[in-house]
């Protein structure tokens, strides 16, 4: 990748002098900053779902304010989730025991990390299924299914917007984690299992993970 770059820009220089104080920045007088907090302290803590549902509802209506269509709205939700995935990737890898603290090198390893570790962290349970596309024309597509997405629990989608699935936010989180790990992908959320009466999982959502061609190429090169 970088070897194809013709010219390397030199690393930007920076003064060697230590920055002691910067005007305008305030530090807590008791010396407690984010660097004084332990990263594992809140590992087992859970948040109130009511407050999350309230916040998420606000996020959706915020995203809805200046959009032209459903696709645009889903894209905005996706963008909101993207940095969350990037950050969680490193946090969760940091929390892994030292022996298994490895960066995912293969698509399967990455997706398993997402469906188990990441899902458990966010929703306290693993994802319900992870499948590879059976269509031979699209070998770069993978599907993660969730029977009952937590984010959609208190979202009622109006009839005229039945294409909308607010789990696009979760799709953004997945996309962020994939991008961060070096597996560029597009992730979209799709509602399945709607329509018929008495369906077991009416809110079932499939996250379609579509990796970029270069990722698939590298995967083939690396072998299993």
């Amino acid at each position: 990748m970088a070897s194809s770059q013709p010219v390397k820009p030199p690393v930007a220089s920076q003064s060697q002098t230590q920055r002691t104080s910067q005007p305008g920045l305030k530090y807590p007088s008791n010396g407690k900053s984010i660097y004084n907090r332990a990263l594992n302290r809140s590992q087992k803590q859970e948040l109130s779902q009511a407050s999350f549902a309230y916040l998420f509802g606000e996020m959706v209506s915020y995203a809805q304010k200046r959009v032209t269509g459903i696709q645009d709205l889903e894209k905005r939700l996706n963008i909101q989730g993207h940095p969350v995935g990037l950050k969680l990737l490193d946090l969760l890898l940091y929390r892994e025991p030292p022996r298994t603290q490895t960066r995912p090198l293969h698509i399967i390893a990455l997706l398993q990390f997402i469906t188990t570790t990441l899902w458990r962290h966010l929703f306290s349970r693993p994802a319900d299924a992870l499948e590879k596309s059976s269509n031979p024309d699209t070998p770069e597509e993978y599907m993660i299914s969730d029977n009952e997405p937590l984010v959609n629990q208190y979202i009622s989608v109006p009839k005229e917007m039945n294409q909308l699935n607010c789990a696009a936010y979760v799709a953004g989180i997945i996309e962020g984690a994939c991008d961060g790990a070096g597996f560029a992908a597009r992730v979209t959320a799709h509602s399945v299992g709607k329509g018929e009466e008495g369906e077991l999982w009416p809110g079932k959502t499939v996250f379609l993970v579509k990796f970029q061609p270069e990722v698939v190429e590298r995967e083939a090169f690396l072998g299993r």
Binding site: I34, Y35, R37, L39, L86, K87, D90, L91, Y94
Partner: peptide, 9 residues
């Protein structure tokens, strides 16, 4: 790395 994770969080 520990401090880095704190930074990006």
């Amino acid at each position: 790395y520990e401090n880095w994770v704190k930074t990006i969080m």
